[in-house]
């Protein structure tokens, strides 16, 4: 297996040919803000069509444990909380996303999974808050009994 770290370097080199195109398109980029668990505001730019998880990975944002299942709707570690007006613009939620959100700690009425949110121009300037980490996120209501899900 190739070592991820050298793969990362290769990948960075490999993406250079696309860089010019990216630069030309950069004015189309969308500015978004994340409020991290410690309250720090992280302001970054993402491209239309990118998911919020893509942005966190591409921009190397230091959010602990974010995106453990790599965007396959198998965990809720990319849980984000939005302002109500932003939440309304985020598009429909599937049952499968709701199922995973139901396991997220600090679930709110305006919670979504970052891997399911695609950036659009209308989200320019939006803010997403990372729910606070807690010492024990056991589901008090759902005493789940397996690590297999």
């Amino acid at each position: 297996m190739a070592t991820p770290r050298s793969a990362y370097v290769l990948q960075k080199v490999c993406t250079w040919p696309y860089c010019n195109a990216m630069t030309v398109r950069s004015e189309n980029k969308i500015t978004i803000n994340f409020i991290n668990r410690d309250g720090e505001k992280l302001t970054v730019k993402g491209s239309p069509g990118d998911s919020l998880l893509d942005v966190v990975i591409d921009q190397n944002l230091d959010i602990d444990g974010f995106g453990a299942c790599e965007g396959t709707l198998a965990c809720s570690t990319c849980h984000l909380i939005f302002d109500e007006d932003v939440y309304k613009q985020l598009g429909p939620v599937t049952d499968e996303e709701m199922d995973m959100l139901d396991l997220a700690y600090g679930l709110s009425d305006t919670s979504r999974l970052g891997c399911q949110i695609c950036l659009t121009k209308s989200l320019e300037g939006m803010t997403a808050r990372v729910p606070e980490g807690v010492s024990d996120m056991r589901q008090s209501d759902l005493g789940t009994t397996s690590s297999s899900s």
């Binding site: 010492s135 024990d136 009994t145």
Partner: peptide, 14 residues
């Protein structure tokens, strides 16, 4: 022995 993978992740980070 309870919880999903995210539970163990947070618990281990703690």
């Amino acid at each position: 022995p309870t919880g999903v993978i995210g539970t163990t992740m947070n618990d281990s980070f703690d």
